[in-house]
Computed example of a mutant assay.
Amino acid sequence: MTINVGGTFFLKPGSICRMMVVAGLVGVLLPAGGCTSTSPSNTTPVGLTEGPKDTGSYPNLNVPPPVAAKQLTKEETAANLAQLKAEEQAQAAKGGKVTAPSNATALNTLAKTHGADTLKQIEGKCDPTLDPNCN
């Protein structure tokens, strides 16, 4: 239905004149809308005249938020780091370190077969040479 309205308004004799009138109105009214702003030279920034205020509304960005937890002291940081290093050394003593193959061909064959081997183990069709616990 809107196609017919547009067709009857713009496609009749004299439609070029109507289109020119509409274009002229848009050309005149569109720039006039930009002239309604105020000049920034006569305004003073609020931050320079007034300090931060607690307005009581959320969020108030002027008031620093409370700290969630106390910060660790240097002694506590050193104690935690020493504990982590001790656990790391205990894990390494158990043989928990994994060494990667050093040559490129071994890495390439691992990349080609790793996905298929993993899928076999997941699907229950595992290879006893890869997994000694396989049934």
Results as ranks from 00 to 15, higher is better:
Ser41Phe: 04
Phe10Met: 05
Gly7Met: 08
Val28Trp: 12
Asn80Thr: 11
Phe10His: 06
Thr43Gly: 04
Gly34Trp: 13
Gly27Leu: 15
Thr49Cys: 00
Lys112Phe: 12
Gly24Thr: 06
Leu130Gln: 14
Ala93Cys: 04
Met1Gly: 08
Gln83Pro: 14
Asn42Met: 12
Ser57Leu: 08
Gly34Asp: 09
Thr113Pro: 08
Asn60Phe: 04
Ala93Val: 02
Asp117Lys: 12
Val28Pro: 01
Ala104Ser: 05
Met20Asn: 12
Val98Ala: 15
Lys85Gly: 00
Pro13Val: 10
Cys17His: 04
Gly56Tyr: 01
Ala23Pro: 02
Val98Asp: 09
Glu76Ala: 06
Ser57Gly: 01
Asn4Gln: 13
Gly96Glu: 05
Gly34Ile: 06
Gly51Glu: 03
Asn103Lys: 09
Asn42Asp: 15
Pro40Ser: 07
Gly27Glu: 11
Pro101Gly: 11
Ser15Ala: 13
Asn4Val: 10
Leu119Gln: 08
Lys70Met: 00
Pro45Phe: 06
Gln71Ala: 07
Lys97Trp: 06
Ala78Thr: 09
Leu11Gly: 08
Lys53Glu: 15
Leu48Pro: 00
Gly47Ile: 01
Ala111Asp: 10
Val21Asn: 12
Thr44Glu: 10
Glu75Pro: 00
Asp54Pro: 01
Ser39Met: 04
Asn108Glu: 05
Gly51Phe: 02
Thr109Ser: 11
Thr105His: 13
Gly14Met: 02
Val98Gln: 12
Lys97Ser: 09
Thr8Gly: 01
Lys85Val: 02
Glu87Gln: 10
Ala116Val: 07
Pro64Val: 10
Gly33Val: 09
Ile122Asn: 05
Asp117Trp: 03
Pro40Ala: 04
Ala92Lys: 15
Pro66Leu: 07
Leu61His: 02
Ala86Val: 01
Glu123Val: 15
Gly124Met: 00
Pro31Tyr: 14
Pro31Asn: 11
Leu29Met: 10
Pro65Thr: 04
Ala90Glu: 06
Glu76Ser: 01
Asn135Phe: 03
